[in-house]
Write a protein that binds this DNA or RNA. Structure first.
Lengths: 198, 198
DNA sequence: CTCATTTTGGACCGATCAATACAAAAAGGC
DNA sequence: GCCTTTTTGTATTGATCGGTCCAAAATGAG
């Protein structure tokens, strides 16, 4: 019943994400979104109710895939917890280096959202916050593991250490966006991990 | 000769800075700027050539005062270099706590600029970059001092450590904007400093 | 006082904004 | 082959955008 859609919804969300990532929420016009997704205006508004709803979908897509990837690294068995945190930071470095190599904009969609729209939009802030809690709790578990296997300093609150690692990643993301190259990011990660060792 | 101005240019720049800080470059309209500064449109455009020029003035004002304050802390004599870095991070914590207490938006104007307009505006990017280099070189000198007085690990490149501290501050700024309170920020700073000790 | 010069107050500009309206097009159900 | 339902394409909406124009106001110079 009814005319079938001529596009894949997920593909459209990804295209919209790329546009929002490059230009930000305010800097992206609905005309930009039409061009990037290849959809006419009415199809966009028929499927997603507004520019903001589409942004939320794009953000949700990003945090889901990104946090899943990070969780996978943290949950990889076979090494110490500290090594897994090190591997997580290496993934961040790899991401940013790939972005710079491919000419795409650097930085993290979540960080950019935090510093712009999140402060003025409760719904978007809630999405970001839920993702933050998820990442914090995953990190906390890994760091508690590290305190048990002896690879992480035991005299600090694991929740505090989780916030530290999160903050370190945020900082690396901003550093990448302000021109830090692969070597520099590796140095930051290497130095940053030193704060976790006993 | 000619009618005298009825406003203080510095005060206008500060008012514009507050507006840009709250809403970002794209989110701030020229009408917003008129309201916040109390100036009519023509006076704004007569004094500053465009919205972008006014933003540059606001950004320059912010980085100048902020970097001067941080340099003052780093150059305070009488303690070890590590203690001075610790004091610098305490200033950051104090800033963010004060912002949250006064109900103002959290975060750092420079970070917000990096994650938004800097990637698409070379002139603004250059302002941010010049400030970054200034802060990095100041930090590097302090950290070299620390390697001499024994308070900072001597087996790491001071330039790398300077990038690490910068990144740590960036991270704290984003963390503050994503809801981290004073206690949490103090924990991040405390943990982060541990990476610098011998 | 008069004139040259600058600022001030708003009206005004074309462009662009997010969003809507609506009819043609394309499918399944019968 | 029609009828219902949904999507698609495009025209258009009122609002707002950054920026300009111009005459009134306000000063110092002569």
């Amino acid at each position: 019943m009814g005319r079938p859609r001529q596009f894949d919804e997920e593909r459209v969300v990804r295209a919209a994400y790329g546009e929002f990532w490059n230009k930000g929420f305010d800097g992206t016009s609905t005309a930009d979104l039409c061009r990037a997704t290849g959809l006419p205006r009415s199809s966009l508004y028929n499927t997603f109710h507004s520019k903001e709803h589409l942004f939320r979908r794009a953000l949700a897509h990003y945090v889901t895939t990104m946090t899943a990837r990070q969780s996978a690294v943290l949950d990889t068995p076979g090494t110490t917890a500290l090594e897994r945190v090190r591997a997580l930071l290496a993934v961040i470095v790899e991401d940013e280096a790939a972005n710079q190599a491919n000419g795409r904009g650097a930085g993290c969609f979540t960080v950019n959202t935090i510093t712009t729209v999140a402060s003025r939009n409760p719904d978007i802030a809630q999405l970001v916050d839920a993702d933050l809690r998820r990442r914090l709790s995953g990190l906390r578990l890994t760091l508690m593991d590290g305190q048990l296997d002896g690879s992480v300093a035991a005299d600090r609150d694991p929740g505090e250490l989780a916030w530290y690692v999160t903050s370190l990643i945020y900082g690396m993301r901003v550093a990448a966006q302000s021109g830090a190259g692969r070597r520099t990011l590796e140095g930051i990660a290497s130095t940053g991990v030193a704060a976790l060792t006993p």
